[in-house]
Simulated assay, not measured.
Amino acid sequence: MTDGWRAVAAPPALRPGDAHVWRVRLDAADELPALRALLSDDERARMDRFHRPADRVRFGVAHGWLRRVLAAYLDAAPSALAFGVGEHGKPFLRDAALEFNLSHSGDLALVAVAAHGPVGVDVERWDRAVECLELAERFFSPAELGALHALREDDARVVEGFFATWSRKEAYLKATGHGITRGLRHFDVPFAPGGAAALVADRLDVEATGRWAITGLAAAPGYSAALVAAAPLRALNLLEPPATGWGSR
């Protein structure tokens, strides 16, 4: 499992083969007015449709920091960034080749950035009320389901194993741009905890195993997260904004 987050006031150099993942805390209501001002009219409308104030804060902080992070790489104004949406719903930058992906769950957001090819990132807060084995029966491949069933005598390990596998599967679908509508049972991700690994199998795309690198991320206690990037992944930087001084160079 990859750990080692460091606070930086501006992005380091992003070289071919690199991926950067930014961790952002979402329980920051005091930041919301400044971050809301960076959003597009459509993003503000989406934010305001949330009924719970905490959900509005999480959405506004996540999407505001997405703009801040991407703008820092592009030397642009955060509010000036223009996004489009791909055929299966994956957002992209209209006027830049920078690849990115956003995921948020609970009080955390992760922003993945790369220059050499698509990326997908996913973070999941553990929910012990989830019927993990029942959901795995519906969505996991036979190999993944068998590995999870091997843990069934230990409820805590079942929860951790389920969310670790789910985050890797989501990150893979987001990286490919297909989204969850393509299904989750036709491919296998590494089940065992650990850092960088290859895709195990994709029965709809047999050559995919050589094109993608999967990395489990230690986002925070009680969370599972994963990054999927175009292979080979030369270097991974785990970053987060500092408490003060963002944007200084």
Rank of each mutant, 00 (worst) to 15 (best):
residue 3 D to T: 14
residue 3 D to A: 15
residue 3 D to L: 11
residue 5 W to L: 11
residue 6 R to L: 14
residue 10 A to Y: 12
residue 12 P to H: 09
residue 16 P to S: 09
residue 17 G to L: 05
residue 20 H to E: 07
residue 20 H to D: 11
residue 21 V to G: 05
residue 24 V to P: 01
residue 27 D to I: 00
residue 30 D to C: 08
residue 30 D to A: 15
residue 34 A to R: 14
residue 37 A to T: 06
residue 38 L to I: 05
residue 41 D to P: 11
residue 41 D to Q: 14
residue 42 D to A: 15
residue 42 D to G: 14
residue 44 R to W: 09
residue 44 R to Q: 15
residue 45 A to W: 02
residue 46 R to A: 11
residue 47 M to L: 13
residue 53 P to S: 11
residue 59 F to S: 07
residue 59 F to I: 02
residue 63 H to T: 04
residue 64 G to M: 05
residue 67 R to Q: 07
residue 67 R to I: 05
residue 67 R to P: 00
residue 73 Y to W: 10
residue 75 D to P: 03
residue 75 D to K: 13
residue 78 P to G: 06
residue 83 F to C: 07
residue 83 F to R: 04
residue 83 F to N: 05
residue 86 G to L: 08
residue 87 E to V: 12
residue 87 E to N: 06
residue 88 H to G: 00
residue 90 K to Q: 11
residue 90 K to L: 05
residue 94 R to S: 10
residue 94 R to C: 13
residue 94 R to M: 12
residue 95 D to P: 03
residue 103 S to L: 06
residue 105 S to C: 07
residue 109 A to Q: 04
residue 114 A to C: 09
residue 117 G to I: 08
residue 118 P to W: 00
residue 120 G to K: 05
residue 120 G to F: 02
residue 121 V to C: 04
residue 121 V to G: 04
residue 127 D to Y: 06
residue 127 D to H: 13
residue 135 L to I: 13
residue 137 E to L: 13
residue 138 R to F: 10
residue 139 F to T: 06
residue 143 A to Y: 04
residue 143 A to Q: 15
residue 148 L to P: 08
residue 149 H to S: 12
residue 150 A to N: 08
residue 154 D to L: 01
residue 155 D to A: 15
residue 158 V to N: 10
residue 161 G to K: 07
residue 162 F to S: 04
residue 164 A to S: 14
residue 165 T to Q: 04
residue 166 W to V: 00
residue 168 R to Q: 01
residue 173 L to W: 02
residue 177 G to M: 02
residue 181 T to C: 08
residue 184 L to S: 15
residue 184 L to C: 15
residue 186 H to C: 01
residue 186 H to A: 12
residue 188 D to F: 02
residue 188 D to W: 00
residue 192 A to I: 09
residue 193 P to L: 13
residue 194 G to L: 12
residue 197 A to G: 12
residue 202 D to F: 04
residue 202 D to W: 02
residue 204 L to A: 14
residue 205 D to Q: 11
residue 208 A to C: 05
residue 210 G to L: 05
residue 214 I to G: 03
residue 216 G to I: 02
residue 222 G to V: 06
residue 225 A to L: 03
residue 226 A to T: 05
residue 227 L to S: 09
residue 228 V to G: 01
residue 230 A to N: 08
residue 231 A to Y: 04
residue 235 A to N: 12
residue 237 N to H: 15
residue 237 N to L: 13
residue 240 E to F: 08
residue 241 P to C: 11
residue 242 P to V: 12
residue 244 T to E: 15
residue 244 T to C: 13
residue 247 G to C: 11
